[in-house]
Every structure is written in C-alpha cells, then in structure tokens.
Design a protein around this nucleic acid. Structure first.
Lengths: 196, 196
DNA sequence: TGTACATCAGTGAACGCGCGTTCACTGATGTAC
DNA sequence: TGTACATCAGTGAACGCGCGTTCACTGATGTAC
C-alpha cells in the first residue's frame, strides 16, 4: 500500500517544483505531469489545487511580480536615505537584476501577451509592482503619486529598464564589442531625463 | 494520380503561409503539418526546404527584422529633410507601430531568448535593423557611427521603445485610465535626453 | 535524335512521444447525534 | 463512546490528440555521350 502524499501543502509544493524547473530554464517544457512526478503525486492530484495548467502558470507569474516588487523595495531600502533619483536608479537596477536572476520566470511574466491579464490575482500583483516605480518617479518629480505625469513617466521608466532587460536576456547585446555595451547603470541613468 | 505541387517556390509559399498564420495570432500553434496542409503539400516536403521547424521559424524571424528595418527607414524617409532628433523619433514610432502591426511575428523575433542567435542569417538581420538606430543616434549626437557613445545611446533608445512595445502589447497599459497612459510620441520623446 | 543515368522534389505510412484532461474509484478524516 | 455519513485529497487507467521526424518510395526533369 503506497503512502499517499501527506507532507502538508501540495499546492505550495507544486509551485515550488515549478519554480525549480523554471530555474533550470525549462519554461517551454514545463508540464503538469512532470511537476506532479517531482512532488511524488499523481497528475490528477494537481487538479485538486489548480483549475488547470494555465491557472498554475498564472499563479507562478503573479508571485513573480510579488518577488519583483520585493526586490525593488529591498534595493531601495538598502540605500537608506538618498536622493529620490538615486532611489529610482536602484529600483531600475534591481529590475534588471531580477530579470537576469530569474530569466524563465521573467519570460513567463511578460511573454504571454496579456493572456494572464484576465485574472484578477495577476493584475493586482502586476499593479502593485508597478506602484513602486510610480512612487519613485513621483518623489523625483515632487508631485503626488496620483499625478498623471508621474504615471506617464513611470511607464516610460518601466519601458526603458524592461526593454534593456529583454535585449540583454536575448543576447542581442553580445553581438557588440564590450566597450560599446552600456552597463545597467548607464541605461538606468537615462531615467534622469524629463523626470528631474 | 494526384498532381504534385508545382506552383513554383514552395519555400516561399511555406513562409507566406506561416506569416498568414502569425497574422491570425497563432504563434503558439504554428506547426509544420498545418503549414504544409495549407500550401497543399505533404509534411515531408517541407524538409526539402528547411532543415527542421526551428530553421523555418528562424527565417521568419530574420525576415521580420528586415521588415522592421524597412519600416523604420520608410518612416524616416517620409519626413524628408528634418532635424535628426525628429528623424529618430519617427524611427521609434515606426518601431512600436511594427510591433502592434505584427504582434505575433514581433514576439517570435524576441521571445526565443536568443535561441536564434546562433544562426548567422538571424544575427545579420538583427544587426542591420539595429544599425538604423545607431545611425539615427549618431546624427543627433553629431558623432561618427562607430563612436561608442552612439552605440550605447542606441541601445538605450532601442530599450525604451522595445520595452514600451512589449508593455502595451501585453495589455499592461490597459489597466491605467486613458489620461495617464503616455502616447507613443510621449515615450519616444524621452529619447531627447542624453542624446541632444 | 536516342538512350542511360543522376538528381531533384515530391509522396504516403509510420514511429514514438508527451501532453492536458476526464472518469470512476478509495481510504482517511471530520462531524452530528 | 459508538455509529452513520459526508467530505476531502488522493489514486490508476484511459482518452484522444497533434506533433516533429524518419523511412523507403516514385515520377518528372536535366545532362552526357
């Protein structure tokens, strides 16, 4: 008589296994069967905790935004009291750092062309992460967080670091000789524009 | 006796069919079998023209860069003689426009995390498109095209428009009320920074 | 002009695979009386 | 304290699917002599 799975939270265990697989860079081949096997459970048990595969992936992506937010906040906090613009730079660097640290997860978060956007859970997580940038920009501009100009500039800032992350992840910069590749810091400094 | 395929260039016909599929937004489900069926040929015939599926996708992506380049050049040319910075803005707008016009193709070009980068054909196409941006930036900065600062600023410029394209494609901007969403033009104007 | 042969671009059948999902089930645990 | 029953979290087997790729083949076309 095989022991059934009884180590507590299967949902968490599946997500953990999925994160491990992503860390191995196996985004494309992530399958429910494989995750279940890794946790030591039958495939069908996964359906007790997630509606379907998409729901599991969505949760993964949403938690990715939570982690991204935490990463940015942590980097800013480490600065202590500093000029707002420097805090914003630190957040930008943390963003690119996160993308490199968790390539596959990052791809999952953004690569689905908004297919996850229909999930409330996902939208909330993404917005909360974005709020960190808006706040940083508002501080630089010395306006309230709900000032339209802060939101707009935050989108531009997000675009800049996001684009850079994608390009470097994709190896598009490697074609360039080293001395012509901008560093994260150099790119992030472009943020000074229009904001200060 | 079935007539074999004799309409000329099967290779071109397959790519054409693939482009049509992408236009329908079927990136994820693009299959050799399906393409062959659409052209009216057996699956195996495709192997006469492409080593494998990956090679076909790579060609598609490479041609995407050719089209992107053409799109940017066309937009710039339409301006006639204008300030360098305005020409750069036009290129940036054309970039975002291309992304929206050919969503799925755009995803294919950048979504593979550099898996295509091993193909010479692909690298060449990407570099040639990038050169348009470098040239535009160099004109603004009034330096030679091979000046390192032009390359660096071009990467930053590319990052900005690329990131914005991804975010808007992913629907991340739709969460924002209309009056807080920056237009393409507003984002592209951030390019003035550090360049002028 | 005719013949022998190589090459080329297709064909149909099959292989092996892993996938998401559904079905009917079982055994342990919790609860009401 | 004991019993009946509902609920819950698993199980194993199976379905049906479409996929990329390989195999051995065929018929048309081009070329050398």
């Amino acid at each position: 008589m095989k022991k059934p799975y009884h180590h507590g939270n299967l949902r968490a265990a599946l997500l953990e296994a999925a994160r491990a697989r992503l860390a191995e860079g196996a985004e494309a081949t992530l399958s429910l069967r494989d995750l279940a096997a890794r946790v030591g459970v039958s495939v069908n048990a996964t359906y007790r905790h997630f509606d379907n595969k998409e729901a599991l992936l969505m949760e993964l992506a949403a938690e990715g935004f939570d982690a991204l937010r935490a990463g940015m906040l942590g980097a800013v906090a480490k600065l202590g009291t500093a000029e707002p613009i420097e805090r914003l730079h630190a957040a930008g660097e943390a963003y690119v750092h996160f993308a490199h640290q968790d390539r596959a997860l990052f791809q999952l978060m953004f690569g689905r062309e908004g297919r996850f956007a229909e999930y409330e859970r996902f939208r909330r997580a993404a917005e909360t992460a974005f709020a960190v940038v808006v706040e940083g920009v508002a501080a630089v501009q010395e306006v309230a967080m709900d000032d339209p100009s802060a939101t707009k500039a935050a989108i531009a800032a997000w675009s800049l670091v996001h684009g850079f992350a994608i390009l470097s992840l994709g190896g598009y910069l490697e074609a360039l000789p080293e001395d012509r590749r901008p560093t994260v810091r150099e790119v992030v400094k472009m943020l000074e524009v229009r904001l200060a």
